[in-house]
Design a protein around this nucleic acid. Structure first.
Length: 404
RNA sequence: GGGGAGAUACCAAAGCGGCCAACUGGGGCAGACUGUAAAUCUGUUGUCUUACGACUUCGUAGGUUCGAAUCCUGCUCUCCCCA
């Protein structure tokens, strides 16, 4: 395929990026690639430790996809070997290493989800255990000689852990080197990573130079702030929107982001064309309510299709705005004439993890039957045949109880 | 190799023989409010039990005691200082 003019490529590549080091080299590489009609090798390494992808991961995967669409070669590295070390980046404690079986299993799940974003047909998929695993101890020592202790411990995450008197295992120092070695092996032209990966990406550049290779350009994407509006999106902070999540949750969670993140989300996680972004920004400021609903709709549509997005919008309007029963509330059958404890019904519906929790909910007015708050937690239900009662637990758990 | 400090619920962090299911903050959940699953305010936050209460929990295994998160011993792990 013919490559787009370099300026146009750059414009697409720059969308949402925080930093490209050095950008001039990227321009040169793109020029050369176009001239020789040879795609660039774009590297992205992923750690198969947490296989649940969310919008935060999508930021960088989408960037990789954009390179694919521009005709370049996307190389996704499953960090099979590095996962057995554990990336210390941004961590305040040592990661537990994985076994190779776990890695394989996680990698499968990862790809299963990543295919929603990447073009698998055109993707080069590799596992760094294939080359890192066969290095000799001597090779490893050779690698370590290229890095100084001072450089390692001046890194934020290490120095913080050091100051906080937390453990840093020696093997964690090898992580950036291993990642850099990937770049040497693949002879990558560009490596993608979050801003927190800057150090690791730069090590790749250095190691390539030491091996007399062309140096990769490092492209850093911002870390997407999660739905809480403060910390980066992460499963452990529970402020994430998973790309595999059901449409209703996806829609609702998207709406829960603070208003000032609306534009950022449009820019980083949606396909809204670049030339429409200014208008979107304007709308986000002037009409945040609708801008956010549009955003939520767009996100659900991307991962579940238009129909699902419409349904999700409807569900949200029904449950949250009108506080009424959603169409998709599950039904729960009760034998007519027999009494059943409400607490048990709630437990069977999985609406509450324990009876203690259920009591608390009831005490606080969080449970209602046909819009009437339940006050007695020992309530016994006795349904007549054909009777229907709407049970609401908490903010958004609904069920239709049916007498059978 | 030597010396010292520490391990508490989802996280952080008090408690240091009974009043401790364990202060406090964060998080979570609920109620009110709201364009919102945002913000704010209030309440709540081990399991079982209608309730009285019972049971499990303070790194781990034992021990002392009427009684232990709190005292003693072994073990595991972590941190600091010196070499």
């Amino acid at each position: 395929m013919a490559f787009l003019p370099v300026e146009e490529q750059i414009e697409i590549i720059k969308r949402g990026t925080v930093e490209i080091v050095p950008v001039e080299e990227l321009v040169e590489k793109l020029k050369k690639s176009k001239k020789e009609n040879k795609p660039l090798k774009i590297k992205l390494g992923v750690d198969p430790t947490r296989p649940d992808l969310h919008l935060g991961h999508s930021v960088i995967l989408r960037k990789l996809r954009q390179f694919q669409d521009l005709g370049h070669e996307a190389i996704l590295i499953i960090g099979g070997f590095t996962a057995m070390i554990g990336d210390p980046t941004g961590r305040n404690s040592t990661r537990p290493p994985l076994t190779s079986e776990e890695v394989e299993e996680n990698a499968k799940t990862y790809i299963e989800q990543a295919k929603k974003i990447l073009d698998l047909e055109k993707l080069t998929l590799v596992n760094n255990a294939d080359w890192l695993g066969s290095m000799s101890f001597m090779d490893v020592i050779g690698l370590t000689s290229k890095m100084t202790v001072a450089r390692m411990i001046e890194r934020d995450d290490f120095s913080k852990r050091f100051e906080n008197k937390e453990a840093i295992s020696l093997h964690e120092f090898l992580y950036p080197l291993a990642q850099g070695q990937d770049s040497v092996h693949l002879q990558s032209d560009v490596e993608l990573g979050g801003t927190d990966q800057k150090f690791n990406l730069l090590v790749g550049r250095q190691l390539q130079k030491d091996s007399d290779l062309d140096q990769q350009v490092c492209l850093m994407m911002p870390l997407l702030v999660g739905t809480d509006g403060s910390a980066k999106m992460s499963k452990s902070y529970d402020n994430y929107i998973g790309i595999d999540e059901n449409p209703n949750d996806m829609y609702g969670k998207s709406l829960s982001i603070p208003d000032d993140l609306i534009y950022t989300y449009y820019e980083l996680v949606t396909d809204v064309p670049i030339d429409e972004l200014p208008a979107v920004k304007d709308k986000a400021e002037k009409d945040p309510r609708n801008a956010k609903h549009d955003l939520a709709f767009t996100i659900v549509k991307m991962y579940h299709g238009e129909e699902a997005a419409k349904d999700a919008r409807k569900h949200f309007e029904q449950t949250v705005i009108n506080k009424s029963v959603p169409d998709d509330a599950p039904e729960f059958e009760l034998t007519a004439g027999e009494s059943a404890r409400l607490m048990d019904v709630i437990k069977e519906l999985n609406f509450s993890p324990s009876n203690g929790e259920t009591k608390r909910l009831i005490k606080q007015g969080g449970v209602s039957l046909d819009d009437e708050k339940v006050e007695d937690f020992a309530l016994e239900l006795a349904m007549k045949a054909g009777e229907e009662v709407v049970l609401k637990v908490g903010k958004r758990k609904f069920a239709i109880l049916k007498g059978v």
